[in-house]
């Protein structure tokens, strides 16, 4: 299990993804815009934080394994929609359709078929590994320990 996680981490950090990010290339602007939009949609639909986190995780892993070109700005938006759509389906009990997901004034709007296609490209690029270990994985466990196995109350959660 640990090996698999390490492999995934290495993949993300491989190549020059981090360097590119810190040099402020196209990836950086894309990432900032993406996170901004994802957070807006998250608030709009009241998605959980894990959903947004996963979407960014998919985005990072995709960008680190695929060379992104500058001349198709709509590609960025399509990629982000696909990442968020996948994350919502993984985590949310009720995820909106792919068309309804494109709220908060995105620059481009795509049809369902195009998004579907992009989803598959993202899935294959990420080698179908859609479950990432996130800080959220541990929060539940720690809460359980703090509360000595009792039911977690909303009061406790708000105090965290």
């Amino acid at each position: 299990f640990m090996e698999k996680e390490v492999e995934q981490m290495v993949e993300t950090a491989r190549g020059e993804y981090l360097t590119k990010l810190s040099n402020g290339g196209i990836e950086l602007s894309c990432r900032i815009a993406a996170i901004d939009w994802i957070c807006k949609v998250q608030a709009y639909y009241s998605f959980g934080p894990l959903c947004a986190y996963l979407a960014v995780n998919y985005l990072d892993r995709f960008l680190s394994s695929v060379e992104f070109s500058n001349d198709m700005p709509w590609m960025q938006q399509l990629l982000i929609v696909a990442c968020l759509s996948l994350a919502a389906k993984m985590e949310e009990t009720a995820a909106p359709g792919t068309l309804d997901l494109q709220v908060c004034n995105p620059e481009y709007v795509f049809d369902a078929e195009t998004i579907h296609r992009m989803e598959i490209i993202v899935l294959t690029t990420l080698k179908w590994r859609m479950q990432a270990v996130t800080p959220f994985t541990y929060i539940g466990h720690f809460l359980d320990k703090i509360n000595e196995g009792n039911r977690i109350t909303s009061e406790l959660i708000s105090r965290c």
Partner: peptide, 11 residues
């Protein structure tokens, strides 16, 4: 070809 895109059940 529904609106849902890639089926969540399969995911």
């Amino acid at each position: 070809d529904g609106k849902e895109g890639f089926p969540r059940q399969i995911l």
